[in-house]
Each structure stands twice: as structure tokens, then as C-alpha cells.
Nucleic acid binder design. Structure first.
Lengths: 189, 189
DNA sequence: ACGCTAACTGGCACCGGGTGCCATTCACAC
DNA sequence: GTGTGAATGGCACCCGGTGCCAGTTAGCGT
């Protein structure tokens, strides 16, 4: 099987799974269901996805890679907050056609606690990347309070943005991101 | 069985479980082990703790209640950031004797991904409480961007504080909390 | 002291997610 | 064709979690 076929199957499985999840509800769909619906054996399913939960979060890793990339592109003299803002604006530049899928995904993440939990674990990698970047820009050790807090705070802000965006269909993702980062820059005092 | 006996058993189970977890590692301890070590049936174990994971997070709920309480005590005219700072300082006022236990707990939370995930779910309740409080103080709807971001950001900052505190044995928890909230108030710009 | 009731207990069978093992199949090279 | 390596998927198994139910215990009124 070529790697193109592989990602193809993965995409098929993912699409079918998301469909089933949104229709029947996450925990009323067994892995056997997913495998059968994807025309694949249960054992094979677990070779494509490490976990039932990870089907929902599929491309989060790609997004992380994109984030790291975008951060690296911002000049090292730039302030961490500005840099992070830039990076997130780039990463979240979805084409309008992708937004419905994104909405579905995020809705699942927010609705199903287990999936939310898994997402949180995934976000830790984001936090680590952001902390490293911020520490480099500030010229301080990574394990100091400031970069550690900064990194977690940025990811948290993005979560907040997604929540609000999900709740209000008319809101524009970009402007929410900008507003959130403005708050972070100015401070809440 | 009196409720006093109940919490007593729960405490015993919890203590034994934490011991086993730190010695053998979280996923090399089965629930049967925990039950047996606590001198209790497996089925009964699950009546004390809804999940193996929740054994580690035991008193987080009490802490949440304490937080809500502390927030309610701060005058409504006070700024949300100040109010949250106050509240967290109160909630995290551990007696020196409790710190070792707290350290163990937090270490487990940071080390074992599944536990971290569970903790993240628990923190959502904190975020909701903080968002409600902040919205009330700002006089805006809860579902707006600012309180939503604020709430998540505050919890994130606390997570950062715990991480740093855990990594440096000499650091004082109180001063870290203060420093983190100072950053939030001033902003990172 | 006696029995009644209600709560607590824990065994048992079961489900669903996840893994190791292994025989089979398939694509591709020679 | 034949051999080789990867992908497949069936099978048995482990573990966390739940419903069910029978046995035990604690507390109460009489």
C-alpha cells in the first residue's frame, strides 16, 4: 500500500467516524462500528489511530507543526506576544470551506469530556513550543515563571477564542484572535 | 456506616493508592491492587472513587468550592484580576505540613498524561466559576470573549505556577502566585 | 432482645477500549 | 513465477468501568 493510499484510508475513516459521532453521539459509537463503517478490521483501525479519541483530533499535530514553523519565521527581536499573535493568525487562517468541518470538530471537543481531556494533553506540546519561543525572545531560561505562564496563558486564550467562536456563528475567527491577544498584551488589570 | 467512617476509608484508600502510584508507577497498578491494598472489594472501590484517575485528584473539588467561596467574599466592586488573585492566595494557603502531599499529587498530575487530562476536565468547572465572577464584576454577559478568555487564562496561569513550583523546591508558592497575577494584570506586551 | 428496614458491601458477569501475537494476503521486485 | 516485506485482520487477552443481585451490617422502633 502506498503512503497516499494510507492517508486516503485514514481520511475516509476520519470522515465516516465524525459523521457517526455527530449523529449518534461519541460514546454510542464503538470502535467496531467505526471499523466496520470504514470497511476495515478493528485491529487495522488501531493502526491508523492510536485511540478512538484521536480520530476527532486528527490534524491537531499538523497545526502544531505549522505553529512552530510560523513562530520560527517571526524575527527574534519581535515581542513574544506579537510573535504568538502572528503565528496563531497564520495557523488559524482556514479557508471558508473548511470552517464547517472545524466547527464540527471543535463542537465534539467541547461536548465530550474525554475528547476535551485528550485535546488538553495535545495542547501541552503547544505550550512547550510557546514557552521555548518566548524564553528565547526574552532571553531568559525556559523554566522560569514568566515563559511558563505566558505559554499556558496563550493556549488558554486560544481555547477561549474557540469557545466563543463556536457559540456565535456570526463571529469572525480572525478578529476574535486579535481581540484576545490585545487583552493579553494590555493585561486585565 | 457513618459518614465519618466513609471519609476515613476514602482517606485510607487514597493514601495507599498514592503510595503505590509513586512507587510502582500509575499504570502498573491495577484497580484490583488498589482495592486489595485498601482491604476492600474492587466493586466497593468504585463506590468511593468514580475512576482510578480520580484517586489522585481527590480534593480538587473541595478546592473549587473554596475558590467560589473566596470569590464571593471579595466586594463586587473589586477588579476581577485582583479578586481572583485574592481568592487563589486564600485557596493555596497550605500549611507547611501539607506541602509534601501536594507536591506528590501535582507530580503525578504532571507526569501521567491521563491524570493530567482528567485534571484539565476538572479545571473546566473552575473556569466556568471564574468567568461568571468576572462577567459580573465587569457587568457584561458571561459568554462574551473577555470573561471567557480571562477565566481560562487565570487557570492557565495557576497551572504554570504549579509547574514552576514543582520544579524548584525552594520557591514559595505564595510569591509565585503573586508574580503570575502581576503578569496577568500588567499584560505581556 | 428481637426483628425490620435501609444502607453498605462485594462477587459475578458483562461491555468496550486497547495490545500482543500470528497466520494470511497483497504489492512489488527479480 | 517466486520470494520478500509490509499491511491486514482475526483471536485471545488485559484492564477499567457498570448493572445486577445476594449477603452483611448498622441502626431503629417496639
Amino acid at each position: 500500500m502506498t503512503s497516499a493510499t494510507r492517508t486516503l484510508r485514514a481520511r475516509r475513516l476520519e470522515a465516516v467516524a465524525l459523521e457517526l459521532f455527530t449523529v449518534r453521539g461519541f460514546d454510542h459509537v464503538t470502535v467496531d462500528d467505526l471499523a466496520a463503517a470504514g470497511g476495515v478490521g478493528r485491529r487495522t483501525f488501531f493502526r491508523y489511530f492510536p485511540t478512538k479519541l484521536d480520530v476527532v483530533l486528527g490534524q491537531l499535530d499538523d497545526a502544531l507543526a505549522a505553529l512552530v514553523d510560523a513562530l520560527a519565521r517571526v524575527p527574534t527581536t519581535t515581542d513574544p506576544t506579537i510573535a504568538a499573535r502572528q503565528a496563531f493568525l497564520q495557523v488559524n487562517a482556514y479557508s471558508p470551506g473548511d470552517e464547517p468541518v472545524l466547527r464540527r470538530r471543535l463542537a465534539l471537543i467541547e461536548t465530550v469530556p474525554e475528547v476535551a481531556a485528550r485535546a488538553a494533553v495535545r495542547y501541552e506540546a503547544w505550550e512547550a513550543a510557546l514557552a521555548r519561543d518566548a524564553a528565547a525572545r526574552w532571553g531568559c531560561p525556559v523554566d522560569e515563571l514568566r515563559p511558563q505562564v505566558f505559554a499556558r496563558v496563550v493556549v488558554a486564550a486560544m481555547r477561549g477564542v474557540f469557545t466563543v467562536w463556536l457559540a456565535s456563528p456570526d463571529a469572525e475567527l480572525r478578529s476574535l484572535v486579535v481581540a484576545a491577544f490585545d487583552d493579553l498584551g494590555r493585561g486585565f488589570g
